[in-house]
Design a protein around this nucleic acid. Sequence first.
RNA 1: GCACUUGUAGCUCAGUUGGAUAGAGCAUAGGCCUCCGACGCCUAGGGUCGCAGGUUCGAAUCCUGUUAGGUGCACCA
Length: 590
Amino acid sequence: MKKLIDMITQEVKIAFIACGYTEKYGAVSLSNRPDLCQYQCNGAMAAAKQYKKAPIMIANEVVAKLEDYTMFKEIVAVAPGFINIKVSEEYLADYINDMAKEENFGFEKAENPKTIVIDYGGPNVAKPLHVGHLRSAVIGESVKRISRFAGHNVIGDVHLGDWGLQMGLIITELKKRQPELVYFDESFEGEYPEEAPFTISELEEIYPYANAYSKEHPEFKEEAKNATFELQSGKSGYVALWNHILNVSVTDLKKNYDKLNVSFDLWKKESDAQGYIPGMVDYLKNGGYAHISEGALVVDVKEETDTKEIPPCMILKSDGATLYNTTDLATIVERAELFNPDVITYVVDKRQELYFEQVFRCAKKTNLVGEHVKLTFLGFGTMNGKDGKPFKTRDGGVMRLENLISEITTAVYDKIMSNRDMQEEEAKEIANKVGIAAIKYGDLSNQASKDYIFDVERFTSFEGDTGPYILYTIVRIKSILNKYKEVTGVDTIATSKMLPATGESETALMLELTKFSDTITTAFAENAPHRVCQYIYDLSNAFNKFYHENKIIANEDEKVRASWIQLITLTCNVLNTCIELLGIEAPDRM
RNA sequence: GCACUUGUAGCUCAGUUGGAUAGAGCAUAGGCCUCCGACGCCUAGGGUCGCAGGUUCGAAUCCUGUUAGGUGCACCA
């Protein structure tokens, strides 16, 4: 189904052509002056120069061609050359009725679906999720859902950090604490136990301890490095331990991501890419791409046009060991081989931009991926506290994601209990949904690339541009619909059509609904969930205004009543679809 | 030092390919419940869009310079 604005544009363009002007001047945009009109065309002013004619004359000519169209309620030329447009109520109602009938409210899915791999989440094994992991998860999840809704074949990959010194540290520390474990018995040849010799909380304590200890004790660090090497060489006891660490970690991570309503199609790990490294390194060497610089194997990635110095992309350290770059490049190779993607999007902290620029350039320059593959860096800003500095706990430590979530949900729970008479059990469930919405909406409503201030007070507020306000609006509509069913005994799935709007707020609500497809299109094109947030906020406002101006259930005219029920049902459905794209769920009551 | 990035109301943020009087929310001051959820709606005040030039009929938006904050600059990830 064509977008309303495109249908208008089409007519205006035809009129421009009919008057002898170039089509491009007929571009129509949303009005900046809602008090004057709904849509506007500014092309006459741009055309004035080319045709050496007063803009208002051009505008008048064009308007004369369109005046009689039933599509328009009003189309006028205004000095110095604006064309102001209002759509007729009948036309708008027809459009809205079609929207309600169509799948996805008439949004047209991509004709040529692309395969898109989204790399987000990026947790490390044996380390708890902390606030630093929040944005990647929340933004990545939403971008994934939006892309999928837009009709693409999307693969969300968590890209687990399971490689490197951290594993050696844990193993070495474990050996120090429990040397009697069979994993350390060199002569052991049987089956290792299925049960892990530690719990997740023990694991989470071991890693930071070992990490700190290694900084003070070089000999311990040396041992850990050695253990890492032995693990990577396949020492069976260590591999068995590593599997335990992975399993215990992943189970816990899944639990936590689940709370956030975040899920991944793939649980690929850095270690999975290791197998691709030797071949890739050989390829880079033999292809003449890589050379030795200061003892390390590097690929130059600077370009003539650079205004800044871009350091070469390092493939192997001077001691011959691999590093993050190596793994990331190998992962690109792995993904290209497994999925043949058109796009790979990385949802990571924006501080890694230069680094990824190097990796992307290296991959392209050396043809590790084809020309057609688009490597996208979607960098997000820092989540700051109210003081504008990176978010910390009260005593200055790193805040665990779990704690952040429970802090928010208790705040919401208290609010619900003080306002509503509700069973504890139900209130808790609702508080979970509302709390998650508060966190996610608070994050997603900002442009991803900017830093933002995480303000518990503001995000959990039920007023203003917040997650809870959006949910409140949805719950309110649901409540009206239930009441309607109660009063009339009629199910809300009415067959009647929506009638042309009779009031301003009704027209405004309908117009807002027509913008659904435009919103999805832009949100996808820009990888920008905040577009969706903005839209549902506007839509919620439009609904609330309409609600206040009209008595829906009490209306005597049965046809109007049915029409309005249809209208708010559609509003509710659109809102629900949108919050789903943000990874948010609405409760039935709150 | 070099580079990237951000600067919009007291605070937190939007701002469509350059368009008309720069928008929201919070906070502040008022008004609206015998009526579908007042966690709502309406009204008011609040701005040199960091600063200075330039391009343009027209600039928060494009260009140049400048200033303030944030960030990054090969063997960490």
